[in-house]
């Protein structure tokens, strides 16, 4: 019994170390997902948008969504606010928001699901209810969903919405009109409705070319950056903005170029790689237990009952 404490510490350190290595060894980036050339997407040109909200109406019609009233809100805010409703919700899959710069000049920006190349929601969903489809859309399956709302936490754009006032709630978000229109060879409802040509529907590859052409043709009109080409591993919806209006001020955050799920996935992968770490920890603990039990037997009865 003399060597107890030291031995305990030593063994503990070894076991802990093993566990630690399995969890916290330098996390490497996993393979980046490449965009498929056949994926569809949209190009939102905020320099062209006139803020008429026709796309919002078209979206509501296409998805049979109820209206949301913001009448009377101006009293609470002290001034009338253009954005209506204020945020995406379970009844609003796309929304035009206004940004005003110092000179009171307005820029309009459209919000909807970005249909990421490597969607965080897909990585996070416990049952795989969110999937990247062959047409490029991120599809939600209400029948599979458990309603845990982890996708809402995971999405860096906070796009997925939840039916807060339904007994049986689902996640609600833009579908890229995948089933209602794309499958019939039609473009998205919002892009069709836009009278200003601010929403361009097309294949991801083509949209990038169009965007580059526009920037080249009118460099004084555009900031030389296509938002969504690389951000968080790339999205299927792109944005263009005016040279003096930063994307961040339009609510499009300055994200890194790697997918947000990279870290969690590589940690998960590391812990469960061929089940080696759990089995190793199991074996070490089993060894220690066997050693202690044998020692106990040899030392005769040390007291205590023998069950488990």
């Amino acid at each position: 019994m003399k060597l107890d404490r030291r031995k305990f510490l030593k063994i503990g350190a070894v076991a802990g170390g093993t566990a630690a290595c399995s969890v916290a060894s330098p996390v490497m980036a996993r393979d980046e997902r490449e965009p498929d050339p056949n994926w569809y997407g949209m190009l939102n040109d905020s320099t062209r948008c006139i803020g008429c909200k026709a796309c919002q109406v078209a979206c509501k019609k296409e998805n049979k969504l109820p209206t949301e009233s913001t009448l009377g809100d101006d009293k609470a805010f002290g001034e009338a606010i253009y954005d209506s409703p204020r945020e995406l919700s379970e009844h609003t899959y796309t929304l035009i928001k206004m940004h005003q710069d110092e000179n009171q000049q307005a820029t309009y920006v459209k919000e909807q699901c970005m249909h990421c190349v490597d969607p965080a929601c897909q990585s996070a969903c416990i049952v795989g209810a969110l999937t990247k489809e062959a047409d490029g859309s991120v599809k939600y399956d209400a029948g599979l969903c458990m309603g845990c709302r982890y996708c809402m936490v995971a999405c860096p754009f906070s796009v997925p919405q939840f039916d807060w006032f339904k007994a049986i709630p689902s996640i609600k978000k833009c579908t890229l009109c995948s089933e209602t229109r794309l499958s019939k060879g039609q473009p998205t409802a919002c892009s069709t409705a836009c009278p200003a040509g601010a929403i361009t529907f097309g294949k991801r590859e083509d949209l990038l070319k169009i965007a580059r052409k526009r920037i080249e043709a009118e460099p004084e009109r555009y900031l030389d950056h296509i938002y969504g080409e690389k951000e968080i591993g790339g999205t299927n919806v792109f944005y263009l903005t005016k040279p003096k209006v930063a994307f961040a001020s339009l609510g499009l955050q300055d994200f890194d170029y790697k997918a947000v799920s990279g870290l969690t996935e590589s940690i998960q992968h590391r812990i469960f790689q061929y089940f080696i770490p759990p089995i190793a920890v199991y074996s070490i603990l089993g060894g220690i237990m066997a050693y202690n039990q044998r020692r106990k037997k040899e030392a005769g009865k040390l007291g205590g009952d023998d069950e488990y």
């Binding site: 990585s123 416990i126 049952v127 795989g128 845990c148 969690t264 998960q268």
Partner: peptide, 13 residues
């Protein structure tokens, strides 16, 4: 569903 529909990339799983 957590038992049947597996998504190995999910931490929640």
């Amino acid at each position: 569903h957590a038992l049947v529909y597996w998504n190995g990339t999910s931490v929640l799983f």
